[in-house]
Amino acid sequence: MKLLVCVCKTPDTTAKITFTDNNTTFDANGITFIMNPTDEWYALVRAIELKEQHGGSVTVINVGLNDSDQIIRKALAIGADDAVRINKAPTDAYDVAAQIAEYAKDKGFDIVFTGKETIDYNGFNVGAMLSELLDLPFVSLANKLDVNDGKATISRDIEGGIENLSVATPLVVSAQKGMAEQRIPNMRGIMAARRKPLQVVEPAAIEPLTTITNYELPPERSDIKYVDAENPAELIRLLHEEAKVI
């Protein structure tokens, strides 16, 4: 099976977010970057497990400049076989999807994985856009995936429940919790990752469809009001009369 996993570089979960240039640019100064958690923990690890079961190969792909190499090497250390980096700082989700589609369209991948969303722009868009560009079925929010004889059996989250479905490969899947367990790379994996191929591909000319023109930090929550533990009725009064939510 030929598997492709899209990985994105995102600020660390605990990073303090600030902006520069009059709130038009994310300030990457002093930020630690990580592989987007759902890409790493669920998409990548499930792809590696499927390769271990059925044979084949796992390629990771990233759209980014060479500051992405660190997370790409980590993906190789966890167990991907080779990597492709499309050499461009992406402008929007469409740019990312179109660059990956341009690379993947004639490579015959059986399954293309993404994480359900990135923790920076929270769009949920790359997988859906990629599937349309490749004209493939797309299953979002998958929490379980097995493949047998070219047929994928998938379970996905829907509002207040689960949908179980099956679909022939090739397809695009966005992965979330449940699909696999995080793997920590071991020393042997880290050593091996240094010798695994990382191909750098020049980007296609893609016009972004959207532009971020301004960022803003949310207003501080007004000071917390404490209610005496002996008197929860006061809380109910405040929620009704002041906050007007019940």
Binding site: D120, Y121, N122, T210, T211, Y215, L217, P218
Partner: peptide, 15 residues
Amino acid sequence: KSAFSGKAFADYTIN
């Protein structure tokens, strides 16, 4: 829209 997992807002212009 909300961005950075609730830590900021981003204003997107559609071109």
